[in-house]
Design a protein around this nucleic acid. Structure first.
Lengths: 213, 213, 213, 213
DNA sequence: AATGAATGAGAGTTCATTCAT
DNA sequence: TATGAATGAACTCTCATTCAT
């Protein structure tokens, strides 16, 4: 009983430590942040932080893992689901952008700071990240095969482009808590599907008009 | 004569210093990079670096400015040119992505590390960056007005999305020198114009029109 | 209890730090002294010094304050006491010169190095120093009013001269621990009262008067 | 002819270098002053200073020597002159205090910074300084012997006290260019001769005698 | 006679880390 | 579980000094 209590206390504090580290790393970067900063945000003293992390680097590792884990997990369930392509794309973008809100700054830290981890610690993250991209590629592949997308598209490019765009918006989302997440999700999805050019039959009108100026 | 020689010697070394700093900052981040790293890459001793920069921070400032300057300048001439919308978009993406090759890593440094500059030094950069986004917005505005684009699009969103996507690719471009720049440019432009969904007919018209100008 | 112990441990070490800094500053001057010198004299490593001082400059500030504080305090009680002029003068000189022995070298540091403090930190010291001089002036004023002194004397000059003479001797006292402090005090007082010229008669009146109180 | 011109040019510049160094050392102290500071005040570049001084330390040595030299020389002629004691004392104090005005800050540098010279370079200065004190002691000795002073006085103490008082005033004189030098000289002399206590009669004898020379 | 460029030693300072308590 | 105290390595930066020109 006492052990259970102690243990859950420890787990809570550990979780707090990870979130605190994530917040500080996101704000100041890995090298710009000090262990004192992290400890203070957590409400303990600098030396006590080492009860939860063996080193600052380990803290970064745990933050990055925390940042990407569930996010990858959700991607897996999206990719293996039965929805049509458009739903999967929407779900992916929703999941990706929502991560920046829900998981605080941990995903941002993963994106920006993971390169400061030693090669071996980066391996697992890289694996997870590749998995994510591959699954997104697979979704695009399926979209092309089922006719939802042009069959000429480069699925590797498509996946990278979507990820890049989402991460770009992620910066803004983290920075500005007032952004309308749902609006951005809609517009991103629309862009990826339809681009900005007018559809329909009279699609050449715009081009003609542009050419006439 | 002697002055000219001496002066150009200094200018050359200063330029080298900026490029060295850009490379190191891009690789390790501002706080992760040491002045010793920069000096060594430049081929001088640590202390001598201060002959060219008053401080590490000033070095960052100059790298960021170097990284964004011509890039913004080119955007200006694109935005104020007579080309139709599609050409402007293509030119913008070409300019943006090419910057990552030509100017080495300076633009990446600007994107990722400029927040470590003090408020006052960041002012000019912010101004330049805003200018860039506004001009891109204006291009989209014009595209919508002339009918080249759906008039329902959110131009602010569009500009941010394109910038985000380009910066995302920028990371890859800087990291992998073997990437086919021209290919990426084509595909990004196509994505922004047409999305990935199959067009009913004449799907390549937009691109053709742009290519014809 | 533990807190009391820990706290007094810290206080002791801090006091030791101030005294060590005083000794090193007095010997080498502020700029000539290194934090390594101070730490070594204190018996700790250089970096550990920053557990007690936020900066070298702060160390100087604390040394100066330490050097002048009680010394000014004693002057206050002398000036406001009931003794006749001669006693006050003797007490002042005794207090001033004794300070150089008791408080180690801190007073010397205050005299010689305080100008290296930033303006704002110097404010309190200046205030204390002015207070000291004004109180000494007041003593001379009273001496002139009560007839103990010639009424033609310039009290401002008198105070400055006594302070200058004492500080001059202070250098010697700090430098040579074998000097007979009592002897110097007597002679300084005698000089200020009677000068070196032979009195025609009753030349010991001043001293006798002082002795009678 | 050319040599003569060059040489005098060099001598002028060297003199300027010494005065510049004196000014900077007086203001910032030896360790607080940089060779760049000195060169800038002289109107040349940092590296060029080494045409005039082999090292910063040598510069200090020359400034100190410059500061004390003539001042000691004048003391010699005062001590060996035929004047009565009072005149010699007045002349000494005049010479001492005037030095702070005429020779700018060099004497102040000698007093405050000479301890940063290496032992061997300090030897000559110490010799000169001792000479000065001894000659002043001799003057007091003579004063006591001729009856101008009480024969009980401690001549060593007297010399030290006068020097200390003068140096104390020297600080003020250098700091405040508006001080009335003549006034201070008068009052210092009066203090040393007569103290501040009222004389019963004939109190002006000493002063009169001094004034008559 | 003077300088631009570079150097290297050492300064003050920060900070991740350790450990007895 | 947490802390106060200390450490030592690394960092940014300064500066006296040198030397080819």
């Amino acid at each position: 009983m006492a052990t259970a209590t102690d243990n859950s206390r420890y787990q809570d504090q550990k979780q707090l430590a990870i979130r605190s580290a994530a917040a500080v790393f996101a704000e100041k970067g890995f090298h710009g942040a000090s262990t004192k900063d992290i400890a203070e945000r957590m409400g303990i003293k600098q030396g006590s932080l080492y009860y939860y992390f063996k080193s600052k680097e380990e803290a970064l590792g745990e933050v990055c893992l925390f940042g990407i884990q569930e996010y990858v997990h959700r991607m897996k369930s999206i990719a293996t689901s039965d929805q049509p392509f458009e739903s999967k794309l929407l779900a992916t973008i929703t999941s990706h952008l929502s991560s920046y809100r829900e998981r605080d700054e941990a995903l941002k830290v993963h994106n920006d700071e993971r390169l400061y981890l030693p090669e071996d610690k980066r391996a697992k993250l890289k694996e997870l990240g590749s998995l994510y991209r591959q699954q997104l590629e697979a979704i695009f592949d399926e979209g092309a095969r089922t006719g939802a997308l042009r069959d000429s598209i480069d699925c590797h490019f498509a996946a990278q482009a979507v990820i890049g765009m989402c991460n770009g918006w992620g910066d803004n989302i983290v920075r500005d808590p007032n952004l309308d997440l749902f609006d951005i999700i809609q517009k991103c999805t629309d862009l990826v599907l339809n681009g900005f050019v007018e559809r329909r039959k009279n699609k050449r009108d715009g081009i003609d008009a542009a050419a006439n100026t």
